[in-house]
Design a protein around this nucleic acid. Structure first.
Lengths: 160, 160
DNA sequence: TACGATTGCTTGCGTAATCAAGTTTATCTT
DNA sequence: AAGATAAACTTGATTACGCAAGCAATCGTA
């Protein structure tokens, strides 16, 4: 046990170690979270993410580009993801009259239901798998630290 | 700006916020890291990860199951990933005489080279995109916090 | 007002990773 | 010494996503 990893030297470069843990934790937690979300509501983590974005948007609708920026998926990724949600009847297309290029994605009533239904259990899962490992002070500290990480080209991708 | 996200209430649940940032940061950073690794060395982030695991293993070889556990991929995922590395001549199969079920994956000389060649630039990239956002104390704190997160069924998946 | 650049979105194609099911070898049970 | 169970690995089918390229609509600018 106690294998040294990702560097030859005696290691202990804490930046690197943090990164490795970051990677591993992400893989493990999202795997579990996805599985539960899938089992209980038939949704992908990304599906859920998009749904929630829409849920909190004004008019419960957004331009596809903006969704992409928020969720950190590609434009094409969003097209396909929304295809699925449309097929499931959770989201509907809506034309924009002022700019014919844009197609809004709008949450349907069924979508709103779905969203509200999934939320509680998902939040509980996040709490259990992620947040429960920290006390309030640590949560704040962690949020602060993670908030400094770059979000790529997205100027304002996070959201609070 | 300042959209509230992932919860209806006034929000400010710092655990959730930390989680969202965690997700977003992961997407952004690994995207960029992958792109660079691909461009400069023709490797996936997972490829690199596996290569490094092998590099630090005794005898520069590991059982495929163990790789899977370390890297948090599925067994089948590992089979296919190694296929690629074998085709590239970076890794070779090696039979185990004491247990005919296992096939070691062993780093070839070329693999070792590749590994060493990729390491410097990748570490620099991790430093730039991830670690550089924190001072030494913060790095330690972050590593500590992330270290508490669950690694799924893996008893000892992380590695230091 | 005309035409080049930009923006929003979609499509084709390639790839990485999953799950479920199958094969072979080991181990356990009686 | 079987026969059942389990472990290590592979394979087939499917999925989710990214990139590059394309099409339309809009904007800027001359």
């Amino acid at each position: 046990m106690s294998s040294q990893v990702l560097t030859a030297q005696p290691i202990s470069e804490p930046g690197l170690q943090a990164w490795i843990r970051f990677l591993r934790a992400h893989a493990a937690i999202t795997r579990e979270l996805s599985a539960r979300l899938e089992a209980q509501h038939g949704l992908t983590l990304s599906d859920y993410d998009v749904l929630i974005q829409l849920y909190h948007a004004e008019g419960r609708r957004m331009r596809r580009v903006d969704i992409a920026r928020q969720v950190l998926l590609t434009a094409s990724g969003i097209t396909r993801l929304l295809e699925g949600l449309e097929r499931a009847g959770l989201v509907a297309k809506e034309r924009c009259q002022s700019d014919q290029r844009v197609t809004y994605a709008k949450l349907t009533d069924l979508g709103i239901e779905k969203c509200e239904g999934a939320r509680a259990s998902h939040l509980a899962d996040v709490e259990e798998l992620f947040a429960a490992n920290f006390d309030p002070t640590e949560r704040a500290a962690l949020a602060d630290l993670l908030g400094r990480l770059p979000l790529a080209n997205t100027s304002e991708a996070c959201s609070g």
